[in-house]
Design a protein around this nucleic acid. Structure first.
Lengths: 366, 366
DNA sequence: ATCGTTGTTGATAGCGCTACCATAAGCCGG
DNA sequence: CCGGCTTATGGTAGCGCTATCAACAACGAT
């Protein structure tokens, strides 16, 4: 009766909450957005009303009124699909909460010029900030282009966090060290390592972590069997071949990501080696591939979805602070990783084996 | 001077376009939304102005004013990560265009009660429609729950399209038949088939397509080596083992999806069989796994992202028509598939060779 | 008592767009 | 030449929220 609302949707609005709490809509807005200068008692009564009415703000109205960022770009370059889908899920969730849209684009080319070109085309559409998951977070041309256009960027899992840049990461070095310590504590003393793509600084961090742990156990890092990989399954195949063809083959292989670890399993099987009885294999990332293969991979879990959420939030905070003119100090957030022990690792066989014959397998899989 | 706009963003609005075209904002709105009752000359001049000013409507304002759907649910249950990421990319793009948000949730349980429970929890939040990608599109409890709540659903790649339901699919049967014809034309006469999960009707369609092609070539489907699989890598492992352990092992394996095909490759390698010289292996879906493994898989490409886009559009159209009270007739859209030939398939080894040309391939048309 | 100064709240005016009328123009048969 | 109809266009009033600023306490410091 009060308002002859033209189209009465049954939705409950901020006005309803205000009425219920006996305050103005503005105060409700302040409470909801964590505004300062609200008396504690007022805040509580508003919160109560929100709860009672089961109110949830209309994001469309919010971003319209606030003139907030509505489009955030996400530029990706075929990382593993497992990584991407996890990442998207996290980013999507955060975007929904914030009421902004994700504009996603792929940039597959390795060519710097093409990367810059794609970035420009992408950035001059209407995105107000860009999220750069790996491996693009390490791409110099893309970062440079974005910087010159003046669009805020948040990099994820990037190697060298810029002093004034936004970055979300895990501690790759420590995580790799933990995994190595785990293998060492199992009794392995001859651990083969497959490095990641040399352009990605995370690769170096992981390698360093591997060496750290070796040294802690009094082993010589320089003597460890290390092969170059490129984060791809294919590269894992050949790196594993080389590792296992050495005169004194390792009893365990630590691959810098799950794709390469899966490849190592494949090679082991082709050579008739039982995993983990004759060869332990561990990975990094805990993508869905880790539980797809048989046996399931022992690996390091990255909270991929959470990292994407954190990245978006960091970006939006930065955008907000830029708009209000305050300083946009760089910000780096490190999330927790975790060691996930599954079936692909175990203590080494007691006797150093002699070379096996790559022959017909004896046993069927599950 | 005209308007002391409180916060002047540099954005161009519908008013700007109206001014440039010499009409009212309302008319511009009508043109943009494909409204009726606009003179052709007017429409054109508005469109020109839109182009000239490079105008793009503000989705937040649009959905606020129109009271349109803003949240669309997407319930998934770990299909392969590769499938999911492609699907999300497509859905995301369509959602952005439409100015609505995707609310995604996973429902991993196989238990009917839990599925129904999860669905209820999900649906009673504020989603106005739900997209169901496979394998959930075949879940009876979920569909039933959604139906009883009265939320519109669009199923993707579901087996039995409801007469009055929304559905997006490809022609699984024909696609499987094409793949089989391809293997037959290569000279294979003993083709092993790994079926998909029996609960998914697409599995049956693919199996039927396989049989169709066999019959066209005058072969007896009942004599073909067929093993049950469940779309998982693991199930592909054991199915392949069984296939290759037969007294008269097949010269080619057609797996109902890429995951199982990848598993077949792994088994072949373990047995020292060269792919494709000694054994051809083909898959279905063309997920990223297909190009990850070595050798790369010959497979059937589903336009996954496009299917997701189509699904969302179908759903939004339905929602709109419901709102305006008109009939919501069911709608099924079938998209095009494609045969992708890569490295994992080739002519059979010369051993059981004799008859080369297909008996009567005349039927094989289209 | 007077003047800031800080903290807390509300009234108002839009954000960019579309639903809903009102209006005006064209067309027909009577 | 008037109603009654259809078709094309514009004016107005919000959608639900927040920025802005004014108002009004409460509190020392002057």
């Amino acid at each position: 009766m009060s308002k002859p609302s033209r189209r009465s949707r049954g939705t409950i609005t901020i006005e309803d909450v205000a009425r219920a709490a006996g305050v103005s809509a503005m105060t409700v807005s302040r409470v909801i957005n964590g505004g300062k200068n609200v008396r504690e008692t007022t805040r509580r009564s508003v919160l109560d009303a929100v709860e009672k009415l089961n109110y949830s703000p209309n994001t469309a109205a919010r971003s319209l009124a606030a003139g907030e960022a509505t489009h955030i770009g996400l530029l990706y370059a075929n990382p593993s699909a497992a990584y991407l889908s996890q990442f998207l899920i996290g980013a999507l969730e955060a975007a929904r909460r914030a009421g902004c849209h994700l504009v996603i684009e792929s940039c597959t080319s390795e060519d710097p010029d093409e990367q810059a070109e794609a970035t420009r085309r992408f950035a001059t559409s209407d995105v107000e900030g860009v999220i750069l998951p790996p491996p693009l977070s390490d791409s110099v041309p893309i970062m440079a282009e974005l910087q010159s256009i003046g669009i805020p960027v948040v990099t994820v899992a990037m190697g060298i966090p810029q002093p004034d840049g936004l970055n979300v990461r895990i501690d790759d070095r420590e995580a790799a060290a933990e995994m190595t310590r785990y293998l060492l504590s199992l009794g392995h003393r001859n651990i083969g390592f497959i490095k990641g793509h040399p352009n990605h600084i995370a690769s170096h961090d992981r390698t360093r972590g591997f060496f750290d742990a070796l040294e802690e156990f009094g082993l010589d890092p320089d003597a460890a069997p290390v092969e170059q990989g490129y984060f791809t399954y294919r590269s894992g195949l050949s790196a594993s071949e080389r590792l296992l063809s050495r005169p004194n083959p390792p009893t365990a292989i630590f691959a810098s990501n799950d794709d390469m670890a899966a490849a190592a399993i494949s090679v082991a099987h082709r050579r008739g080696l039982h995993v983990p009885a004759e060869l332990s294999i561990v990975g990094f990332d805990d993508t869905s591939l880790a539980t797809t293969v048989w046996p399931e991979l022992t690996t390091v879990k990255q909270p991929i979805a959470a990292m994407a959420e954190a990245a978006l939030e960091l970006l939006l905070t930065d955008l907000r602070s830029r708009r209000s003119g305050s300083e946009h100090k760089g910000n780096v957030r490190a999330l927790e990783h975790a060691l996930i022990v599954r079936e692909s690792s175990g203590p080494p066989a007691r006797a150093p084996k002699r070379a096996r014959v790559p022959a017909r397998a004896s046993k069927a899989g599950a």
